[in-house]
Simulated assay, not measured.
Amino acid sequence: MKSILDYETVALVDEDDAIEIIDQTLLPGTIETIRLHTGKEIWDAIYLLQVRGAPAIGVTAGFGLYLLMKHSEAASYEEFMEELKEKSDYLNSSRPTAVNLSWALKRMESHVVEFTGTGKSFDLSKTIEEMRAESERIKAEDIDVCRRIGENGLTLIKDGYGLLTHCNAGQLATCKYGTATAPMYLAHEKGMNIKVYCDETRPLLQGARLTAFELHSAGIDTTLLCDNMSASLMKTGAINAIFVGCDRVAANGDAANKIGTSVVATVAKRYGIPFYVCAPTSTIDINTKTGDDINIEQRKPEEVTEMWYKERMAPEGVKVYNPAFDVTDNELITGIVTEYGVLKSPYDVAIRKLFEEHKNR
Rank of each mutant, 00 (worst) to 15 (best):
G219T: 11
V249W: 02
L154T: 02
K126G: 05
V327I: 14
M234W: 05
Q50H: 09
A231F: 05
N100S: 12
G191Q: 12
K300S: 15
N287Q: 14
L36P: 01
G191A: 09
I22C: 04
E189A: 13
L26C: 08
S76V: 03
D326K: 09
S76M: 02
E83I: 00
K139Q: 14
G245F: 01
Y177I: 00
A314N: 11
E302N: 13
I336S: 04
G62P: 01
G53S: 04
M1A: 10
D16W: 00
R148G: 04
L163E: 00
E306I: 08
V267G: 05
T30D: 12
D23S: 04
F275A: 09
E129S: 11
G291K: 09
L12Q: 13
L215T: 06
F63M: 02
G160V: 04
K195I: 02
I19F: 00
C246R: 03
G39R: 01
T181M: 12
F325D: 12
P28W: 13
Y347V: 04
S345T: 07
E134G: 00
I46V: 15
F275R: 07
P28D: 09
L154F: 08
A241V: 14
H71P: 00
P28C: 08
P274V: 08
C278F: 05
T174P: 02
S110N: 15
A180L: 09
I239V: 09
T38C: 03
G260S: 12
R209T: 13
V196C: 06
Y90I: 07
S135I: 00
I157P: 00
E141Q: 13
L233S: 10
Q24H: 10
E331H: 15
M108Y: 06
S110Y: 06
G117W: 12
C226V: 14
A75R: 12
D44W: 05
C175A: 14
A268W: 01
E297K: 05
D326N: 13
E8G: 08
D254I: 06
N295W: 10
N257H: 15
T211G: 10
G53P: 02
M69G: 06
G178I: 03
R95E: 11
I57Q: 02
S88V: 02
S88Q: 12
I220L: 03
T261I: 09
C167N: 11
T334N: 12
E200C: 06
A169I: 01
K2C: 05
K344F: 03
V10N: 00
I143L: 11
V337Y: 01
R352W: 07
P183E: 03
M81L: 15
I157A: 00
N100K: 09
K158E: 14
G207K: 02
I143M: 13
R52Q: 03
A74E: 07
S345K: 07
Q206P: 08
M192L: 15
D89V: 04
P274H: 13
A133L: 14
V304L: 07
G160A: 11
T290R: 11
R248C: 11
K359S: 12
